[in-house]
Design a protein around this nucleic acid. Structure first.
Lengths: 123, 123
DNA sequence: CAATGCTGATTACGCGTGTAAACCTAGAAT
DNA sequence: ATTCTAGGTTTACACGCGTAATCAGCATTG
């Protein structure tokens, strides 16, 4: 299960979001972000197939694609990688970074508070 | 100022850490992680020079390299990019992710608490 | 001064990526 | 059955990356 590329991950996002899609649906879904031609989407899908990240099942004359790689796993690997590379493996410095940058929204703060409270008493 | 690659960023880490270094010092500094030949390091340094991420000043027969790109900026861009790509631009879900993963260390938690308290009353 | 040897610059090379044109094939339409 | 066509598959190509061999300039030394 080789690592998936930037362009490929855009398609994965859509697949994770809606569970499944045809090539054309995918193309439409990313149309505003990318202007990919149909062939481009197909090629990317094939690479994802080869990497084992998705599977395809025939449906009449076309295919329906579904994720095999779990979003959770991908997210975990990407997050871990960034945190390790830039923040010495610890989460807090990243939050601190955003805090200094004043890039924490009100709802972010609310949720962080909630999370911490949860962790403090629960479990 | 094009984006810097994975291998290049390893050299940047060292430069940010010590402020400056020669090619050979860099090679030693990353020796255990990479086994790069001297030529490899030189080539990477040249790419960084072309990208404007570092500068070099002659020092006798060799060069001394310093970062031009600020670590802060790099970190900000990378973090922002990940958060946007995977967590819809918000920080809390990332922390939640690590929390679910039980990947928050004791000191992470302590610091998060401290950060939140700080934001709550201070400023 | 010529030979030797650092150190940086240039060139190379295979591989993944982004993007797409060209090609192929099983159904649909006639 | 023959042709048309909506998909999918193969091939292509330029570019960046990881890695390094090779080339070139200049300083040290015999």
């Amino acid at each position: 299960m080789k690592s998936i590329s930037e362009a490929e991950s855009i398609l994965m996002q859509v697949l994770w979001q809606r569970g499944e899609a045809t090539a054309e649906e995918l193309r439409e879904a990313v149309a505003e972000r990318t202007d990919w031609q149909p062939g481009t989407v197909k090629a990317l899908l094939n690479r994802l197939l080869n990497k084992g990240a998705i599977r395809a099942e025939r449906e009449g004359r076309r295919f329906r694609y579904r994720p095999v790689l779990e979003r959770e796993d991908y997210v975990a690997e990407q997050s871990r990688s960034l945190i390790d590379r830039l923040f010495d493996g610890r989460v807090a410095p990243l939050v601190a970074h955003f805090s200094e940058q004043k890039a924490l929204s009100k709802s972010d703060l609310d949720e962080l508070r909630r999370l911490i409270r949860e962790l403090d008493d629960g479990e």
